[in-house]
Amino acid sequence: MRWVRDPLLVVEGLTMRFGGLTAVRDLSFSVGRGDITALIGPNGAGKTTVFNCITGFYKPTSGLMALSTGGPVRLDEVAALASTGHRYKCVDDQIGADGVFLLERMPDFEIARRARVARTFQNIRLFSGMTVLENLIVAQHTPLMRASGWTIKGLFGAPQYRQAEAAAMKRARYWLEHIELTHRADDAAGSLPYGDQRRLEIARAMCTDPVLLCLDEPAAGLNPRESLELNTLLRTIRDHHATSILLIEHDMSVVMEISDHVVVLEYGLRISDGTPESVRNDPKVIAAYLGVDDDEVAQVEAEVGL
């Protein structure tokens, strides 16, 4: 129950309307620090919309999304910050420093570099004309930009920049090894097979050194072996890095096997929230997935052998 004890992200009353359509309605949930949290639900439940709100690509109609690095989200602290009108509060106002961030107020790239939330996309968005290595280097833009003295020092080949680039290379190498793509580092990202592209996108997001990694259907289109590799990769991230994971997934084998916490959406509403076991046995969830009334659930359960 880390999401209660030590929440990294607290979403409160999130609502997103597109014209007349309410994609997400008054949604509240927390993401625990160090957890793998899965956001599941039938097609059109509003999962990707939640992702786009958290990562700043959509401005939510209303609601609060507070992320705290360094310590659990404390609601009194968040309320105090919200009343000041600031978007975030962090140590020395440094990019990448610990602090409290009100994500609904921040533009997408600020969420990525200040609040350190990284994401992948449902339809892979790699820089396909750049090499695998370049993809991983671009992800380290923020520290490299600072080291290059906002380009000016870099233009004259300052040693500080060369050191930073070497450090970036080291990190890139590390992730290349983890996704087993070292041998293809200098090939165009667009030339990789689909499964490799998925892993590369995750590695690229990890290169930004995130506290929260949001994965939008990472197992979509993977074969069973690749799916297994993905599980290993995600566990490595959780166990060896200070990165929590929030993922959208349809593949229940992935969800049930690796997640610590599952939130279920249907028609933009939260219908269940808890450990994988508790969610698995929640009649509402079964009904939502199988499209049957609650009273028929027992019967269906018997049929599917639960």
Binding site: F109, A112, S128, V138, H141, L144, G154
Partner: peptide, 24 residues
């Protein structure tokens, strides 16, 4: 330099750039 790589990355995919913290 990072700025040049960001230009080319932006040409490839602007949304991915923003998701990586690049101020497009």
């Amino acid at each position: 330099l990072p700025i040049g790589r960001a230009w080319e990355a932006m040409r490839e995919d602007e949304i991915a750039c923003r998701s990586l913290g690049i101020n497009t």
